[in-house]
Amino acid sequence: METAHDRKALINSLQKNILQWEGYRPPPAGTQGLVGLGAVETAFPNGVFPLGAVHELVCSTTEQATASSGLISGLLSVFMQNGGACLWISLTGNIFPPALSGFGIEPSRLIFIRVTKDQEALWVMEEALKCAGLAAVVAEARELDFKQSRRLQLVVEQSHVTGFVLRNAVKKVGSTACAARWQVKPLPSEPVDGLPGLGFPRWEVELLRVRNGHPGTWIIEWAEGKFKQVEKEQTAKPFKRKAG
């Protein structure tokens, strides 16, 4: 039994080492639960939402893209707390700044860049991710291949800026070097206190792929300025490890 115990400890420490070599440092104290996503964060390595990484959000409809923007806005409100600025690169340019104040962001600290091509969006994103003073960079693009995502990943490893790529109308989802692939779908809201009308925005947040983490599905609401997890009967998928 002792040898089995030793082996387990050895594997654990080796796994931790591998994480470190891959750029995941052990989380500093007090970073757990930083972004307020609750159980979603436990899916990531070390149980911490990876900052200084590129996240990919795939969506097939405008409704999904809007829900993804909502999730990103909620996350940005945390990143921009200290007065940082953020870049939002998009092809459509239809983000309506006054709505962002409802997500706890000061919209005037967001700089919107309108691009015409995916190539331009990714070029701007790469340049922006080099700028360590930014709180986060969001880009809306259609296609993102492995090479492009690898470039972005290499840049953020230097600058520790968090990037989001919102992939709308994806034709083919290949493998990328992003830290996580998300899919956010809108869900019908629940009435608050039985009042008629719409409740808080509610989404089905699915982590399709997580590097060194556990994919899963959660139901998240944006309520009163923070994320709130909604318990359902079947939340997480069966435990399945997927190497990035």
Partner: peptide, 23 residues
């Protein structure tokens, strides 16, 4: 941030200053 101003200069040089907006 100076770095941000420099970044915006590079973006403006590449795709044009009219594409950068802040509201």
């Amino acid at each position: 941030d100076t770095a941000l101003a420099e970044l915006l200069d590079r973006i403006a040089g590449k795709i044009g200053p009219e594409r950068i907006m802040r509201y």
